[in-house]
């Protein structure tokens, strides 16, 4: 079924073709709903999942950690066979569609860890509404894409509660003909006094045929807030390459080391030790 996914909260120039993405999504979407009571804590690991539609309501001071990892072809096969522990969605053309929507009450916290290592095409949406005062959201997105892989992300932090806090951090590596589109939106709405939103993106480009698109958006209709965004996109710093080369490292090895370091910086934040160790050893 052809549908538009990843529509951002604010559109930009039409010719950039980033105001939503047309995909061939599965006809039937699997749904998981979570409701965490006051003070509850839960970690969900969706390893090998091709994608899913998840919605969650977090009660007062509850914490939900969602770890979603997308790997390579084995996972696509598993998804097609319906062997996924947390459910998976896979389009007719092999695309994975992932949609996460979370509402946070007072003091609640949602952490989203998204690691994309493979799969033909991955479309991720994560929308978090920070409704309760002092609620918080942290997104850690790491990816390493090669071949003709596609990653298309729309991540939104909507601040309505006072003193809410959001961090969107995306770090990854693109090589060969890989393509990535990262839309990150911090929406500081009227009434969210004292809110802080930070977004950081770091992309290492390894080949001349890659394509990186970044749309870091800050929307603000409240005075007493801070929204920051920073992005670094491109190749490795020449001085650093020179330094490491002068210490005897081959250029290729330097790039490989730095690519691994970029992804590892996200993986190390994953709260589950087994998953973390597994990914670091891969």
């Amino acid at each position: 079924m052809e549908t538009i996914v990843n529509k951002p909260l604010a559109n930009t120039f039409g010719w950039l073709n980033v105001n939503g993405t047309k995909v061939n999504a599965p006809d039937k979407m699997q749904q998981q709903e979570y409701e965490l009571e006051e003070g509850a804590e839960r970690t969900i690991i969706a390893d090998f999942a091709a994608g899913s539609r998840i919605s969650a309501k977090l009660g007062r001071n509850a914490t939900l950690r969602l770890v979603q990892i997308r790997r390579g072809k084995e996972e696509d096969t598993a998804a097609a066979a319906g062997n996924l522990s947390e459910g998976g969605l896979k389009g007719a053309d092999g695309t994975a569609v992932n949609d996460v929507r979370v509402k946070c009450s007072e003091g609640a916290r949602f952490e989203w860890y998204r690691i994309v290592l493979g799969g033909e095409a991955t479309y991720d949406n994560c929308t978090v509404e920070l409704e309760g005062d002092r609620s918080s959201f942290e997104a850690q997105i790491g990816y390493r894409l090669g071949g003709e892989q596609v990653l298309d992300v729309n991540c939104e932090a909507i601040h309505t509660g006072k003193k809410t806090d959001s961090v969107i951090n995306a770090s990854g590596v693109l090589s060969e003909k890989a393509s990535k589109l990262m839309r990150g939106t911090i929406d500081l709405r009227k009434g969210c006094k004292g809110a802080v939103g930070n977004e950081l993106e770091d992309v290492l480009l390894m080949d001349r045929t890659v394509r990186n698109r970044s749309i870091p958006v800050i929307l603000c209709s409240e005075e007493d807030v801070v929204g920051n965004h920073g992005a670094t996109i491109g190749r490795l710093d020449e001085d650093m390459i020179f330094y490491l080369a002068s210490r005897g490292m081959e250029t290729e090895a330097i790039y490989e080391m730095m690519a691994k370091a970029k992804l590892d910086s996200v993986i190390r934040r994953i709260p589950d030790e087994e998953v973390r160790r597994g990914l670091l050893e891969e």
Binding site: L16, L205, R211, R213, S214, G227, T232, G234
Partner: peptide
């Protein structure tokens, strides 16, 4: 918005509200 189609580029962006 940034649309980068080569690896041989250095792109920096910062915004603050």
């Amino acid at each position: 918005a940034m649309d980068i189609r080569t690896d041989k580029a250095d792109i920096g962006h910062e915004a603050r509200i």
